[in-house]
Simulated assay, not measured.
Amino acid sequence: MSTESQALLRRDCPGRVLLDHITGKWGILVLTSLTEGPLRFHQLRAGIEGVSDKMLTQTLRTFASDGLVERTVLPTAPPSVVYELTELGAEAARELEPFLRWVRATASAGVAVRV
């Protein structure tokens, strides 16, 4: 195991906080959704089946605090808000893509997945 991986096993590793945010129930799905470009809240909610307003709001706020997502208020009446990946968020999404390919391939290969 690499030294970087070993560091994540330690309770006081700051990387564990970011890992928790990204790999939470909705984190990967939000990052993946935003890879297509900026989206408004309702577009994100419609695209991620099953996410509640509360959890989507919480995930977006956390990602904005982490520097993964940028929230922009547009000067419209009423004001519109769009969310988009920052460079750091886009990098995280690119790094997740091989894992997501594996998940899709494994699930479609008929591996027993409990729903």
Rank of each mutant, 00 (worst) to 15 (best):
E49S: 14
T62N: 09
M55E: 15
D12Y: 09
P14F: 08
R11F: 15
I28K: 03
R94E: 14
A107Y: 12
S108L: 13
E36H: 10
S33F: 05
V69A: 00
A46L: 13
D12G: 07
P78T: 03
E95K: 11
H42P: 10
Q58E: 13
A112I: 10
T72C: 02
R104S: 08
V17H: 11
T32M: 14
K54R: 14
A93D: 02
T35V: 13
L74K: 02
L31S: 01
V51I: 15
A107V: 15
F99R: 11
M1K: 12
K54C: 05
P75Y: 01
S33W: 03
G47S: 06
R101K: 13
L39E: 13
V111Y: 14
V81H: 09
V51F: 00
R114P: 01
L9V: 14
M55H: 13
T62I: 11
G47V: 01
E95A: 06
G89Y: 04
V115I: 10
K54V: 04
R40N: 07
S65H: 14
R104F: 09
E87K: 12
V115N: 13
W102Y: 12
D12C: 07
Q58V: 09
T57N: 06
A105I: 03
T86V: 05
R10C: 09
T3Q: 15
E91C: 02
E49K: 15
L96H: 02
L56Q: 08
R71H: 00
L100N: 05
R101D: 01
F41D: 08
R40T: 01
A92S: 03
T3D: 12
T86Q: 00
D66E: 14
P98C: 03
A46E: 15
P75Q: 10
V103M: 04
L29I: 00
K25D: 11
I28F: 00
G47Y: 06
R104Q: 07
A77Q: 10
A64E: 04
D53Q: 13
D12W: 05
T106Y: 07
S2W: 11
G27I: 10
A46D: 15
R94C: 11
G89E: 04
V82Q: 01
M1D: 15
R114F: 08
G50K: 02
S5W: 04
L8F: 12
A107N: 02
P75M: 09
K25I: 14
T86N: 01
T32H: 12
S80H: 10
G47R: 08
L19T: 07
D66R: 11
I22T: 05
P78S: 06
P14W: 08
E95F: 05
E36Y: 11
T35S: 13
L44E: 00
P98W: 02
A46K: 15
E97Q: 14
L31N: 06
H21D: 10
D66Q: 11
V30R: 05
E87M: 03
P38T: 06
T35A: 08
S33D: 03
E4F: 15
T59S: 07
A64Q: 05
D20V: 07
E97P: 09
L100I: 05
E97W: 00
H42W: 02
A46R: 15
L39F: 04
C13R: 03
Y83D: 00
G15C: 06
R114H: 12
G47I: 01
A77S: 10
L19M: 09
W26G: 04
V30E: 04
G37H: 02
V113I: 13
